[in-house]
């Protein structure tokens, strides 16, 4: 498990860095006398979308896993939650022996 987490974190960092390397190179070529306005702005855009899609992958991955794992039809999910013996489970709490 730890290895998977470490590898995925490294992969995410690499993903975040790749576009900046690539576009820094593209910038060098076009910048002559003035800064290249559209390259600057679009580079910023691609950096931001990389960040957004990285976070989005984590969030939507978590959501898909949650929906898959905690659906009531999941085999590991046959026993009622410890709050279901209450009249209203939503009024329970997270103390050790939920009452």
């Amino acid at each position: 498990m730890k290895r998977i987490i470490a590898v995925s974190i490294i992969a995410l960092i690499a993903l975040a860095l790749v576009p900046s390397i690539h576009f820094a190179h593209a910038q060098e070529k076009s910048a002559k006398q003035y800064i290249n306005l559209r390259a600057e702005v679009w580079n910023e855009f691609f950096r931001m979308t990389t960040a957004a899609f990285t976070v989005g992958a984590v969030v939507s991955g978590t959501m898909i896993w949650l929906v898959w794992r905690f659906r009531e039809s999941h085999p590991k999910n046959q026993t009622p939650t410890r709050w279901e013996k209450l009249d209203d489970p939503t009024t329970g709490n997270y103390e050790k022996e939920g009452h």
Partner: peptide
């Protein structure tokens, strides 16, 4: 990160 990066780019452009 978003804020700092867009500050830098905006200052430039």
């Amino acid at each position: 990160y978003v804020g700092v990066d867009s500050w830098i780019v905006q200052k430039e452009v």
